[in-house]
């Protein structure tokens, strides 16, 4: 079980980062949807902290993943029709952009409220934006728009992986599961 990526396979580090990101994105996204609908109370206030914790985890994992892939480049995409390859590449790049921009816009919006951004139950992140209602509103609007876009990109990504696994029967999904 290799840590680094091989010429045709994903190493354990890349696969772990991928699936941990999946978990963190599902947690952050699920909590985000829940927060939008829930009645805020003393009991539910903690979910804001959980959402921020999951979001900052997504950001950390994504940065780590980008750095790791500079050190250990991922294997090339398995052959596919040019259109499908271009689409896959666009979806991948957009996913990375969203995974960076989503937590950052949330962090900017939280900073702009003037309230501390507290994650992992007690770590206060530095403010990365001045206190401003205009910045807060804009950041959270972008955050929500990116959330919708992210769900679409995830759907395309999953559909592409399933298409390759079950229709084209290539190793794309298998090598992300088992290397």
């Amino acid at each position: 079980m290799a840590l680094k990526n091989g010429p045709e396979s994903f190493g354990i580090a890349t696969r772990s980062l991928h699936w941990l990101t999946v978990l963190a994105v599902v947690a952050a996204g699920g909590l985000g949807l829940w927060i939008e609908e829930m009645e805020v109370s003393l009991a539910t206030l903690q979910y804001f902290g959980w959402h921020k914790t999951a979001g900052i985890t997504v950001l950390g994992l994504t940065v780590l993943r980008i750095v790791w892939h500079r050190l250990s480049p991922v294997p090339p995409v398995l052959p596919a029709p040019p259109m499908a390859e271009r689409l896959a590449k666009a979806v991948h790049l957009s996913l990375y952009a969203c995974l960076l921009a989503m937590p950052l816009t949330g962090w900017i919006g939280s900073s702009a409220t003037g309230l501390d951004t507290v994650v992992f139950g007690g770590i206060t992140l530095p403010a990365i934006a001045p206190v401003s209602e205009a910045i807060e509103e804009t950041a959270f609007e972008i955050h929500e728009t990116l959330a919708a876009l992210l769900w679409v990109l995830i759907a395309l990504h999953v559909a592409g992986a399933l298409n390759r696994a079950f229709l084209h029967r290539d190793a794309t999904l298998r090598r992300m599961l088992r290397g």
């Binding site: 206030l45 409220t113 003037g114 309230l115 501390d116 206190v131 209602e133």
Partner: peptide
């Protein structure tokens, strides 16, 4: 703490 910060904030 959050409520205290919120109460003292500009909003």
């Amino acid at each position: 703490p959050f409520a205290t910060q919120g109460m003292k904030s500009r909003k």
